[in-house]
C-alpha cells in the first residue's frame, strides 16, 4: 500500500556501526490511520530504525519524510509532527508529572495544555501521581507518562518502541485502546514489539526485519497466504520462518 498520502515515508534507510550494518536499505510507508507492526529478532535494527526516524540518530543514508517534510532539510518541522515513545523512557527526575506535561506543551508550542493534560492524566491513570517527581516513578508509571506526553502533542506520526513494557494488565488494556483510538483519529503509527500477540491484535500491516533488512512487508493475511507459513499459521510461525529461525516447509 504505497500512495502519495503517506504520513511517513522511509526510503533506502541505512545505518552502520563501524563494520556492523544495523539497518540496510529499509523502505516503507505508513498511511493515515494505519498501524505498522515492526517485528524482528534482537539486533535486527528495529530500535535503530525508529531512533533514526525520530531524529534522535542522524541519517547516514536514505530519506525520511514526515507528512511531506524531509527530516534532513526541515528537521524541526518534521519533529513537531512526530512523537516518540522510547523503550525505556527517562523522565526528568526534577520535574513532577504535571510539570512534564507543561514542559512538553512548551516545547511543542501547545497553548491550551492545562485541561488536556488533566484529561490525559486521568486517561492514563496518572492523576494520583500528578505531583510525583520523575525520579520517583516506577517503570510502568514512566511508560504511562511517556504515553501522556506523546498524546499531548497530538502527533500525526507516532513511533513506539516496546510501548507496553512495565504496564499492568489494566494499563495494557488502556494503552491498547488509546493506540487504536489514535489510529482511528488519523495518525500513522509504527509500533515495535516482541509481543507478537500485540502486533497481531493491533497492527494493520507487518514489517519483519532481520539483520537490518526488511524480509517481509504486508498484511497478516498476505503473510499467511505467502510461503512463510501454512494457511492459517500464526504470526509466531510466520516470524520464525521469515527470520530463518525455522525453515519454510515445502
Amino acid at each position: 500500500m504505497e500512495t502519495n498520502s503517506s504520513l511517513l515515508k522511509v526510503s533506502g534507510l541505512s545505518r552502520a556501526y563501524g563494520t556492523v550494518q544495523a539497518v540496510d536499505g529499509l523502505s516503507f510507508e505508513v498511511q493515515p490511520g494505519e498501524i505498522l507492526g515492526l517485528v524482528g529478532p534482537n539486533g535486527a535494527g528495529k530500535t535503530t530504525s525508529l531512533r533514526t526516524i525520530a531524529g534522535v540518530l542522524p541519517i547516514q543514508s536514505g530519506e525520511i519524510q514526515v507528512v511531506g517534510r524531509d527530516l534532513v532539510e526541515d528537521p524541526i518541522g518534521a519533529k513537531s509532527l512526530l512523537a516518540w515513545v522510547p523503550d525505556e523512557p527517562q523522565p526528568d527526575e526534577n520535574l513532577t508529572v504535571l510539570e512534564h506535561l507543561e514542559f512538553t506543551a512548551g516545547i511543542y508550542g501547545i497553548g491550551d495544555w492545562g485541561e488536556i493534560a488533566h484529561e490525559l492524566l486521568a486517561r492514563f491513570d496518572l492523576t494520583a501521581k500528578a505531583d510525583a517527581l520523575g525520579g520517583e516513578l516506577s517503570r510502568g508509571m514512566r511508560q504511562k507518562l511517556a504515553f501522556a506526553q506523546a498524546w499531548l502533542t497530538r502527533p500525526r506520526v507516532l513511533l513506539m518502541d516496546e510501548p507496553l513494557s512495565g504496564l499492568d494488565p489494566l494499563g495494557i488494556r488502556a494503552a491498547k485502546a488509546e493506540i487504536l483510538q489514535m489510529a482511528a483519529e488519523g495518525a500513522a503509527i509504527v509500533l515495535s514489539s516482541h509481543l507478537l500477540k500485540l502486533i497481531e491484535e493491533l497492527a494493520d500491516r507487518l514489517l519483519i526485519l532481520d539483520a537490518g533488512r526488511a524480509v517481509f512487508t504486508g498484511t497478516l493475511e498476505e503473510a499467511r497466504a505467502s510461503d512463510l507459513a501454512d494457511s492459517g499459521g500464526s504470526l509466531e510461525e510466520i516470524f520464525l520462518a521469515a527470520t530463518g529461525a525455522r525453515p519454510v516447509e515445502d
Binding site: R51, A54, G55, V56, P75, I76, G77, A78, K79, S80, L82, W84, P86, P89, Q90, P91, D92, I107, Y108
Partner: peptide, 13 residues
C-alpha cells in the same frame, strides 16, 4: 546524559 534520547527528539534546533 541519561535523557539525551528525549532531548534529541524535541522539535528545536
Amino acid at each position: 546524559l541519561t535523557r539525551m534520547e528525549s532531548l534529541k527528539s524535541w522539535p528545536l534546533s
